[in-house]
Design a protein around this nucleic acid. Structure first.
Length: 887
RNA sequence: GGGCGUUUAGCUCAGCUGGGAGAGCGCUACCCUUACAAGGUAGAUGUCGGGGGUUCGAUCCCCUCAACGCCCACCA
């Protein structure tokens, strides 16, 4: 009775992936639909850079968010997942600038602002959607109609509206301030964009003469002797006995021989360096503050590209590194260099350019975030928004409880141009949402717009609002702002908690008084298998698309989900993907097994009275899995959800239930066959439903077979816990049955029986329910352990002599094989088992004979321990019985 | 300098409010058994980083030391 099976032996992901993605699109399955929960569930995708190529971080983003949105969709929420891309000011401008240079040997200034921007837009139209296509390969189920680009019209309106609002409140202001200047980008960058790295340098000790008393020489320690050209004071601590008399006198700066005042300032650390500090307000953050306190002049000695200007004539045109060498030479010549020591110290580097940033004074726009930060902190403190895992709120608080004004202007061209206008005629300065034609004050037409653009994060911070149409009323109505704001969950990495999460909170709450999302799930950073960050320079990056090609998107997704819980690192080994590919294939083959019987299966489960014990068992187990998966996914424990379903499918369903089904399906009892086929189909529907959020493609493919493509799995209801399916007793019996079967196999393996060798088995148990269960399952023993015949008796019955044996707490197993087995081997095996059991028994017994334990431990724990002691005791008794049989 | 985190089987990691150490991968032996060799069955492997404390009882709580990682901080 061979049954035809025309399904391929292995699952072919490539065909299924594109086919189902297209089908989901065609059926508009990603669009929000009202569901039984009567609530919306919105996720906002962190917009990848338009210049981006999908990397593992994006793949993880895509997987976790898609799993969530599919899960909630199936649970009956009206789900919306909003995609988009970011203009990524600096990196995009750099990419296109490089390209134009390569092709035409022209820089952006050669082209002019208007033409240059045209080129970037053209580039964006052509290449900017590559990452979107790559995301689709991962199966992301976002509503592409909501797709948005940070420089689109509405986000631009949002930026202008917000800017003007805060400008008019006085929260946005322009100031001469010392900022981090990136000489590569030739732009200011914010504090957050500066990375401090340990750099090897030197400590130079320089001599400064005192004008009033040529005998005194001040020794000043510095790591940057080249900045002496910008010195405008020497400072000492006013409490420093050594120097306090010098305050008010004049020091002479070496090389340039500038006369500068010696001042007292509390900032100077008596212990540090020599206790004397050269003050360079133009190029040092602290010194800038000292300068403000003491009204010192500011000298700028740098050009925008980081080279020295005419204020430092001896080193004009040189870059800092060469300048330092030159200054050192001159100082030696002059005899002003006292000492030069190795010194390692942190130096700020631009996050994007990786170049040493120079503190420089320039006119920039700032946003005062003091009040907004406070509001954002409160929202997390009072639970309006919460982090998963909770620990990340510390990072969030650390940033927001100590807010600094945010430098929001960038000297770039690609971005939202600052909506501030100036009048050449009357010097008026104002902010406006619509480009004005004349001066607000004097009505003169000779006006111009500020040439700077805003920090990219300024528009990113408004993303939850602008993607839903704010501030355009028509767009807001179309996109149903009121229904989808605030978002439910934001999923992102911890590296942008302050760049992005904090700013969305501040800006979102400023506009709406509501946190833009209720939960923030912070996922891990993907690293290589050795825990190193994936980077181009190390060459250890894994391309997700390669993995998708090799193992399928489902395998890739399952791997990432299985590695995502509350961890901060996810060390990815491609072998893991292969492992989960095998799981996906296992699922496929389990389906191949039931496929020929689908015709027999009925749509409804039979009445409970017709359920086989094994049916009750598998449904109870399935129900348990459904419960844990729902709970796990609700709190972003994708790892737990994956391991639950993996375990169930592999062990419970494939290794036992399917194996136990063969006896029935290959047999002659038609009614039993129909019931079993129905059960198998039912289970399979539940399994693919549970798995669908994580591995959407194969599950949709299988669903197509199960339902003859009459419906799509993506639109089905998720499996919920059903109390009526609980059955602790049958689960206990089944576990014991598995113990016994495994015990028999164990003996077979220990005595080297071939799979074909049939055996006679004698079972002894005092558990009457178990005896009945085993009796009813006797036919299955044949399939599972090749048992030809056997008996089930009480433990008190006479045992066969000299058998291969095994004992569990509840059942003794004897396989009479006299003459075929080595008696000493058997005795040794049993003795070893006894020793192990004895040791465990002693541990438990020690507790029971400890009066303190008996007095203090809760009753629950005591009875549990007693129970265990009894089980070990039973097993020991059985083992010694077995030993007796060899006498 | 301040803060956070990690340390559990060869590798990657899970262990919730303290109560007999887990998973996947890898490894060993035997099997091409009619869903699956991308498979099956059986199996081995841990002083839970070191030390101290609290407790009847600690992988879990407290202290301390060590190693590693990350973030913040004004480059004397």
């Amino acid at each position: 009775m061979e049954i035809e099976n025309n399904l391929p032996k292995t699952f072919n992901p490539e065909g299924a992936e594109d086919k189902w993605y297209q089908k989901w699109m065609d059926t508009k399955s990603f669009k929000p639909k009202k569901g039984k929960q009567g609530e919306t569930f919105t996720i906002l995708m962190p917009p990848p850079n338009v210049t981006g190529k999908l990397h593992m971080g994006h793949a993880l983003d895509a997987t976790t968010q898609d799993a969530l949105i599919r899960f909630k969709r199936m649970k009956g929420f009206e789900t919306l997942w909003i995609p988009g891309t970011d203009h990524a000011g600096i990196s995009t401008q750099a990419v296109v600038e490089k390209l134009i240079w390569k092709q035409e040997k022209k820089n952006r200034h050669d082209l002019g602002r208007e033409e240059f921007l045209k080129r970037i837009w053209a580039w964006k139209e052509e290449y900017g959607s590559e990452i979107v296509n790559q995301q689709k390969k991962m199966g992301v189920s976002c509503d592409w109609d909501y797709s948005c680009f940070t420089l689109d019209e509405v986000p631009n309106k949002a930026v202008k509206k917000f800017f003007v609002m805060l400008f008019n409140e006085g929260l946005i202001y322009q100031a001469d301030y010392i900022v981090n200047w990136d000489p590569i980008l030739q732009s200011a960058i914010s504090d957050a964009e500066v990375e401090h790295k340990e750099v090897k340098g030197f400590f130079y000790h320089l001599k400064y003469k005192v004008k009033e008393d040529p005998n005194i020489e001040l020794i000043i320690a510095t790591t940057r002797p080249e900045t002496i050209f910008a010195d405008t004071a020497v400072a000492v601590n006013p409490n420093d006995e050594r120097f306090k008399d010098l305050i008010g006198k004049t020091a002479i700066v070496p090389i340039c021989n500038r006369e500068v005042p010696i001042i007292g300032d509390e900032h100077v650390d008596i212990e540090k360096g020599t206790g004397c500090l050269k003050v360079t307000p133009g190029h040092d953050f602290n010194d800038f503050e000292i300068g403000k306190r003491n009204n010192l002049p500011i000298i700028n000695i740098l050009n925008k590209d980081g080279s020295f200007n005419t204020n430092a004539p001896e080193i004009e045109g040189l870059k800092p590194k060469d300048a330092r060498k030159k200054v050192e030479e001159i100082l030696i010549e002059l005899g002003e260099l006292v000492e030069k020591k190795d010194h390692v110290h942190p130096v700020g580097h631009g996050q994007r350019s990786d170049e040493i940033v120079e503190p420089m004074v320039s006119k920039q726009w700032f946003l005062n975030t003091t009040a907004m930060s406070e509001v954002a902190v409160k929202a997390v403190e009072n639970g309006e928004m919460s982090f998963f895992p909770k620990g990340w709120e510390n990072t969030y608080f650390a940033w927001l409880r100590n807010p600094k004004d945010w430098c929001i202007s960038r000297q770039l061209w690609w971005g939202h141009q600052i909506p501030v206008y100036y009048c050449r005629h009357c010097n008026a300065k104002w902010a406006a949402e619509e480009a004005p034609h004349e001066c607000v004050e004097c009505k003169n037409k000779d006006i111009y717009q500020d040439s700077d653009v805003l920090d990219t994060w300024f528009s990113s911070g408004l993303w939850p609002l602008s993607t839903l149409g704010w501030p355009d009323e028509k767009a807001m109505a179309e996109k149903r702002f009121d229904d989808f704001y605030p978002n439910a969950t934001l999923v992102t990495g911890f590296d942008i908690i302050f760049f992005w999460v904090a700013r969305m909170m501040m800006m979102g709450m400023k506009v709406t008084n509501q946190a833009p999302f209720k939960h923030v799930y912070i996922h891990a950073i993907v690293r290589d298998k050795q825990g190193r960050k994936m980077s181009k320079s190390l060459g250890n990056g894994i391309d997700p698309l390669d993995m998708v090609k090799q193992y399928g998107a489902d395998a890739m997704r399952f791997t990432l989900a299985a590695g995502s819980g509350y961890n901060r690192d996810l060390n990815l080994d491609p072998e893991r993907i292969e492992g989960y590919r095998n799981f996906v294939n296992k699922l496929w083959n389990a389906f191949r097994f039931i496929h020929p019987y689908l015709d027999k299966a009925q749509d409804q489960l039979p009445v409970k009275s017709e359920w086989h014990l094994h049916d009750k068992w598998i449904l109870a187990e399935l129900n348990t899995v459904a419960k844990s998966m729902n709970e796990a996914l609700d709190v972003y424990r994708f790892d737990d959800a994956c391991s639950e379903i993996y375990q169930f499918v592999y062990e419970k369903f494939c290794s036992w239930y399917i194996e136990l089904s063969k006896n029935i399906l290959y047999g002659n009892d038609e009614k039993a066959k129909i019931i079993r086929a129905t059960m198998l189909k039912y289970c399979f529907r539940k399994i693919v439903t549970l798995l669908h959020p994580i591995v959407p493609f194969i599950t949709e493919e299988i669903w197509g077979y199960l339902e003859n493509e009459k419906s799509l799995l993506i639109n089905q209801e998720y499996v919920e816990f059903d109390p009526s399916l609980e059955n602790a007793e049958v689960q206990e019996m089944m576990n014991k049955f598995i113990d016994v079967t495994t015990g028999i196999r164990n003996i077979r393996s220990a005595v080297n029986l071939k799979p074909k060798d049939e055996i006679d088995v004698r079972l002894f148990t005092d558990d009457k329910r178990l005896a009945k269960f085993l009796y009813e399952s006797r036919h299955f023993m044949k399939d599972l352990a090749n048992v030809k015949s056997g008996t089930i008796r009480n433990k008190s019955a006479e045992k066969p002599k000299r058998s291969a044996s095994f004992a569990s707490a509840h059942t003794e197993i004897f396989i009479p094989l006299e003459g075929l087995i080595d008696i000493n081997d058997q005795i040794n095996r049993i003795k070893k088992d006894m020793e192990k059991t004895q040791a465990e028994y002693k541990k438990v017994e020690a507790k029971l004979s400890n009066a303190n334990f008996m007095n203090n431990a809760p009753e629950e724990v005591r009875s549990e321990v007693k129970e265990k002691a009894q089980q070990f005791q039973d097993k020991l008794n059985s083992l010694s019985e077995i030993l007796k049989s060899f006498e």
